[in-house]
């Protein structure tokens, strides 16, 4: 009998497939098309202390097997989430994770503090990896000291499960992962997007208003798999793998690389039902290979 359940910190997931922050709204955007109760978890859109308008349009360009976005953490702020969105999503029968971002250490901690009143939020995902904001975001995730300061402050403000989302735009991602673990992270998720750029050669201008943005999609998958493999050997906490997962096979690849769970992001834009198909694929795969628990999915 295959058991798909996974534990990340104190958070129980019914299966290892979650949705990646920023690609799934608050879940409700997909509710017509997906039975949300089948998902392992939903990581909702990055939330900051104050509302943010994000970056000017254009914010997205399609690239080979991927896309570059520069949304810039547009969101209505944590108070709006608490008062208006949470009541609509709190009864979804899946693990709810709020992705938290900020400019200052105090911002991050204040958002966590505010979320503590929400019983149904199983975990926070501390985003020290957004490449599309001028202050904060990725800048906290590119040094061990920056990572340590944000993660410890959030640790003091949040006693449930805390995931730290890492940027791949660093020389050695294992260093940052170890710093997050040492500062109290229950899990690390990786990778956020790669800093990228694309130019409209006829107009001789960059496609994005911000010139550079975050590359996601299948194009980044082999690099993401490599980083998940490295980090899973460097830390003891469970690793959540993401980066270009397009289907169930790709999800299994991350689990074999050492991830305990996965997140699917960009692929939802192409097939909104990809998460459900991936869950079914993983179950079939485990039956086929005679593997009973997710933790036993390992490379030979």
């Amino acid at each position: 009998m295959v058991d798909l359940s996974v534990k990340i910190g104190q958070m129980c997931l019914k299966n290892p497939v979650m949705t990646a922050s920023g690609t799934y709204g608050f879940g409700e955007e997909y509710a017509d098309l997906v039975d949300l109760s089948r998902l392992g978890g939903i990581v909702v859109k990055g939330t900051t202390l104050e509302p943010r308008q994000g970056n000017p349009y254009p914010r997205m360009v399609e690239t080979p097997s991927g896309m570059i976005n520069a949304v810039g953490l547009q969101n209505k702020g944590v108070d709006y989430l608490v008062e208006h969105i949470y009541p609509r999503i709190k009864d979804y029968d899946t693990a709810l994770v709020v992705n938290v971002s900020g400019r200052t250490v105090e911002d991050y901690a204040a958002v966590c503090e505010r979320l503590r009143t929400l019983d149904k939020i199983a975990a926070v995902e501390i985003n020290i990896s957004c490449p599309n904001v001028k202050q904060g975001g990725m800048s906290w995730g590119t040094t061990t000291a920056g990572c340590e300061s944000v993660v410890s402050a959030c640790r003091r403000a949040w006693d449930r499960t805390m995931i730290v989302k890492l940027t791949p735009n660093v020389t050695d991602i294992t260093e940052i992962a170890r710093a997050a673990e040492a500062a109290g992270a229950d899990s690390v998720s990786l990778v956020n997007t790669f800093l990228g750029m694309a130019i409209d050669v006829e107009r001789r201008r960059p496609y994005l208003s911000t010139i550079t943005g975050g590359l996601s999609g299948a194009a980044i998958r082999p690099i993401a798999v490599r980083m998940v493999w490295q980090v899973s050997q460097a830390v003891k906490v469970p690793v959540i793998g993401l980066g270009g997962i397009m289907n169930g096979r790709d999800a299994v690849e991350f689990l074999l690389a050492g991830a305990s769970a996965v997140q699917i992001g960009t692929a939802n834009f192409i097939d909104p039902q990809v998460t459900i198909k991936a869950i079914d694929y993983i179950r079939d795969y485990m039956e086929r290979h005679g593997i009973e628990r997710i933790a036993d999915l390992r490379m030979l």
């Binding site: 920023g22 690609t23 799934y24 709204g25 955007e29 997909y30 098309l33 859109k45 994000g54 914010r59 997205m60 896309m67 976005n69 949304v71 547009q74 960009t266 939802n268 834009f269 909104p272």
Partner: peptide
């Protein structure tokens, strides 16, 4: 990108 109001692109 998404067409569903999720990605904010």
């Amino acid at each position: 990108a998404c067409g569903l109001g999720a990605c904010l692109c």
